Simulated assay, not measured.
Amino acid sequence: MSEEPKAKKKKGGGMKMILLIVVAMVVGGAGAAGGLYAAGFFSPKEEGPKEDPNKPVLVLAGESAEEIAKAHAVPHGDAAAAAAHGSAHGKGIDLPTPANPTAYQATYFQLQQPFTSNMSDTDAFAQISIAVSTYYDLRVIDAIKTHEMAIRSQVLMMLAQQPQESLLTPEGKRALQGRIKGIINDILKQKTGFGGVDNVYFTNFVIQ
């Protein structure tokens, strides 16, 4: 009879020992986890770069480029700051042509004044009128209107460097379209942070 309480005491002491071991493991595990966290093993997941609110968006077929631009409009000061930030950290982004253009709405814009310049190798001059298209919202067209002076200057400088013969062939005209498109997108990227012009069209082309 006298040994039965001793057995119970032993059992109770064993349970206490198990509890102490579990507590030690939990505390030790928490300490180890804290050490790993401090070492950077469990650092919080970094967020990717935030989408620039000034970036034009694609316009689905049937949608309004103007309404989408209004819906995504940001205050003028914020837009200017975003453009300045983009210019300070690179040459801006050339927005790509969508893989399936038929799913999107193209917007066209005619530059009102023609471009007139002498040729580089003759006394002849070229006079061209151009229009542009974009699959992005109206902010691309608004940017072209805002920075038309810079666009006109660069296009005229490039046009004055072209020999007459190169502009008399279909291949030469297509190459000129590509150069003008590049100039416009480069200026938009510098001024706003984004390009967006998909194509350039000649609405008048005269060499005299």
Rank of each mutant, 00 (worst) to 15 (best):
T122A: 14
M119C: 09
V140M: 03
A124S: 14
Q110T: 14
Q105V: 06
I130C: 04
Q105I: 09
N118C: 06
T102G: 10
P101C: 00
I141M: 04
S133Y: 13
T97E: 15
T107W: 07
G92N: 05
L111D: 06
Q112Y: 08
G92Y: 01
A103M: 15
T116V: 11
R139K: 04
A126W: 03
S120P: 04
P101D: 00
A106N: 06
I128W: 03
V132M: 08
T116Y: 11
A143P: 11
Q127A: 13
T97V: 15
D137P: 00
P98H: 05
L138W: 05
T134Y: 02
V140Y: 07
A99M: 09
T122E: 13
S120H: 08
S117M: 07
A143G: 13
V132E: 08
L95G: 10
Y104I: 12
D121L: 09
Q105S: 06
Q127C: 10
T116P: 08
D121P: 02
A143F: 03
T97D: 15
S120D: 08
V132G: 05
P101M: 01
A103I: 03
D121Q: 06
L138M: 08
Y108E: 04
A126C: 15
S133K: 04
Y136T: 01
D142R: 07
L111V: 12
S129H: 12
T134M: 04
A131E: 14
Q105H: 11
Q113P: 13
F115P: 06
N100D: 14
L111A: 12
I130Q: 02
P96K: 01
I93W: 12
D142C: 02
M119Y: 03
V140E: 07
D121N: 04
P101E: 00
A126P: 03
A99Y: 12
A143C: 11
I93T: 14
D94L: 08
D137S: 02
I128C: 00
F115K: 06
Y104D: 09
Q113R: 14
P98K: 03
L138D: 05
T97H: 11
I128R: 00
L111T: 03
V140H: 04
A106Y: 11
